[in-house]
Amino acid sequence: MEEEWTPKITLFCCNWCSYAGSDDAGVGRKQQPPSTRTIRVMCSGRTDPGFVLTALMEGSDAVLFTGCHIGDCHYISGNYKAKKRFEMLKEILDEIGLEDERLQLQWISASEGSEFAEYIRKVTEEIKAIGPSPLRQEWMK
Protein backbone atom coordinates (compact mmCIF):
# COMPACT_ATOMS: atom_id res chain seq x y z
CA MET A 1 0.00 0.00 0.00
CA GLU A 2 1.22 3.44 -0.82
CA GLU A 3 2.18 5.58 2.14
CA GLU A 4 -0.18 8.41 3.00
CA TRP A 5 0.81 11.65 1.34
CA THR A 6 2.14 14.39 3.63
CA PRO A 7 1.82 17.92 2.29
CA LYS A 8 4.87 20.17 2.22
CA ILE A 9 4.08 23.37 4.07
CA THR A 10 6.53 26.26 4.40
CA LEU A 11 5.94 28.12 7.62
CA PHE A 12 7.27 31.60 8.32
CA CYS A 13 7.42 32.37 12.02
CA CYS A 14 8.35 35.59 13.76
CA ASN A 15 10.93 35.21 16.49
CA TRP A 16 8.83 36.72 19.27
CA CYS A 17 5.38 35.22 18.99
CA SER A 18 4.64 32.43 16.55
CA TYR A 19 8.09 30.80 16.72
CA ALA A 20 7.76 30.88 20.50
CA GLY A 21 4.20 29.54 20.20
CA SER A 22 5.56 26.71 18.10
CA ASP A 23 8.18 26.08 20.80
CA ASP A 24 5.43 26.08 23.38
CA ALA A 25 3.56 23.44 21.39
CA GLY A 26 6.73 21.36 21.52
CA VAL A 27 7.20 21.85 25.24
CA GLY A 28 3.59 20.79 25.75
CA ARG A 29 4.20 17.77 23.44
CA LYS A 30 1.27 18.87 21.28
CA GLN A 31 1.44 16.34 18.45
CA GLN A 32 1.25 17.60 14.88
CA PRO A 33 1.64 16.09 11.43
CA PRO A 34 5.25 16.38 10.14
CA SER A 35 4.16 18.62 7.28
CA THR A 36 5.82 21.90 8.13
CA ARG A 37 9.30 23.35 7.71
CA THR A 38 9.83 26.49 9.72
CA ILE A 39 11.76 29.55 8.64
CA ARG A 40 12.44 31.93 11.44
CA VAL A 41 12.38 35.65 10.73
CA MET A 42 12.69 38.36 13.35
CA CYS A 43 9.33 39.90 12.43
CA SER A 44 6.44 38.81 10.25
CA GLY A 45 7.07 42.11 8.47
CA ARG A 46 10.18 40.46 7.02
CA THR A 47 8.15 37.79 5.19
CA ASP A 48 8.99 38.77 1.64
CA PRO A 49 6.53 37.99 -1.17
CA GLY A 50 9.57 36.73 -3.08
CA PHE A 51 10.17 34.04 -0.43
CA VAL A 52 6.56 32.97 -0.64
CA LEU A 53 6.52 32.72 -4.43
CA THR A 54 9.86 30.86 -4.40
CA ALA A 55 8.49 28.38 -1.86
CA LEU A 56 5.42 27.77 -4.02
CA MET A 57 7.45 27.39 -7.20
CA GLU A 58 9.89 25.05 -5.48
CA GLY A 59 6.95 22.86 -4.64
CA SER A 60 5.50 23.87 -1.31
CA ASP A 61 1.88 22.84 -1.19
CA ALA A 62 1.12 25.76 1.09
CA VAL A 63 2.82 28.74 2.70
CA LEU A 64 1.83 30.12 6.08
CA PHE A 65 2.45 33.64 7.32
CA THR A 66 2.43 33.72 11.10
CA GLY A 67 3.25 36.42 13.63
CA CYS A 68 2.22 38.29 16.73
CA HIS A 69 -1.43 39.19 17.17
CA ILE A 70 -2.37 42.60 15.87
CA GLY A 71 -1.43 45.11 18.53
CA ASP A 72 1.21 42.81 20.06
CA CYS A 73 3.95 43.21 17.45
CA HIS A 74 7.37 43.25 19.06
CA TYR A 75 8.35 45.85 16.48
CA ILE A 76 5.25 48.02 16.94
CA SER A 77 3.60 47.47 13.57
CA GLY A 78 5.49 44.90 11.47
CA ASN A 79 2.53 42.53 11.53
CA TYR A 80 0.26 45.16 9.94
CA LYS A 81 2.70 45.34 7.08
CA ALA A 82 2.81 41.56 6.88
CA LYS A 83 -0.97 41.54 6.65
CA LYS A 84 -0.94 44.03 3.79
CA ARG A 85 1.65 42.01 1.88
CA PHE A 86 -0.30 38.86 2.53
CA GLU A 87 -3.41 40.48 1.07
CA MET A 88 -1.46 41.64 -1.96
CA LEU A 89 -0.06 38.13 -2.52
CA LYS A 90 -3.51 36.69 -2.07
CA GLU A 91 -4.77 38.82 -4.96
CA ILE A 92 -1.94 37.65 -7.21
CA LEU A 93 -2.48 34.01 -6.36
CA ASP A 94 -6.23 34.37 -6.80
CA GLU A 95 -5.53 35.81 -10.21
CA ILE A 96 -3.60 32.73 -11.28
CA GLY A 97 -6.25 30.50 -9.78
CA LEU A 98 -4.34 29.01 -6.87
CA GLU A 99 -6.58 27.62 -4.14
CA ASP A 100 -7.26 29.87 -1.18
CA GLU A 101 -5.91 27.34 1.34
CA ARG A 102 -2.41 27.46 -0.09
CA LEU A 103 -1.57 30.82 1.37
CA GLN A 104 -2.72 31.55 4.89
CA LEU A 105 -2.18 34.08 7.62
CA GLN A 106 -2.46 33.22 11.30
CA TRP A 107 -1.57 35.23 14.42
CA ILE A 108 -0.18 33.08 17.22
CA SER A 109 1.11 34.32 20.53
CA ALA A 110 4.03 32.86 22.45
CA SER A 111 1.76 31.04 24.86
CA GLU A 112 -0.63 29.60 22.28
CA GLY A 113 1.09 26.25 21.82
CA SER A 114 -2.21 24.40 21.77
CA GLU A 115 -3.67 26.78 19.23
CA PHE A 116 -0.54 26.47 17.15
CA ALA A 117 -0.70 22.67 17.05
CA GLU A 118 -4.42 22.76 16.34
CA TYR A 119 -3.83 25.17 13.49
CA ILE A 120 -1.10 23.00 11.92
CA ARG A 121 -3.36 19.97 12.14
CA LYS A 122 -6.18 21.90 10.52
CA VAL A 123 -4.08 23.31 7.69
CA THR A 124 -2.52 19.93 6.96
CA GLU A 125 -5.98 18.39 6.64
CA GLU A 126 -7.09 21.21 4.36
CA ILE A 127 -4.12 20.72 2.06
CA LYS A 128 -4.51 16.96 2.10
CA ALA A 129 -8.06 17.50 0.91
CA ILE A 130 -7.00 19.54 -2.09
CA GLY A 131 -3.85 17.59 -2.92
CA PRO A 132 -0.41 18.62 -4.18
CA SER A 133 0.11 22.11 -5.48
CA PRO A 134 -0.58 22.53 -9.21
CA LEU A 135 2.20 25.13 -9.33
CA ARG A 136 4.80 22.51 -8.62
CA GLN A 137 3.39 20.31 -11.35
CA GLU A 138 3.26 23.21 -13.82
CA TRP A 139 6.81 24.09 -13.09
CA MET A 140 8.08 20.56 -13.61
CA LYS A 141 6.60 20.26 -17.10
Binding site: K8, R37, G50, F51, T54, G59, S60
Partner: peptide
Protein backbone atom coordinates in the same frame (compact mmCIF):
# COMPACT_ATOMS: atom_id res chain seq x y z
CA UNK B 1 16.40 33.00 3.70
CA UNK B 2 15.96 31.90 0.09
CA UNK B 3 18.55 29.19 0.65
CA UNK B 4 16.43 27.91 3.54
CA UNK B 5 13.29 28.04 1.42
CA UNK B 6 14.95 26.07 -1.37
CA UNK B 7 16.32 23.40 0.97
CA UNK B 8 13.17 23.03 3.01
CA UNK B 9 11.99 19.81 1.43
CA UNK B 10 13.59 16.90 -0.37
CA UNK B 11 11.92 17.73 -3.65
Amino acid sequence: ILAQVKHAFAW
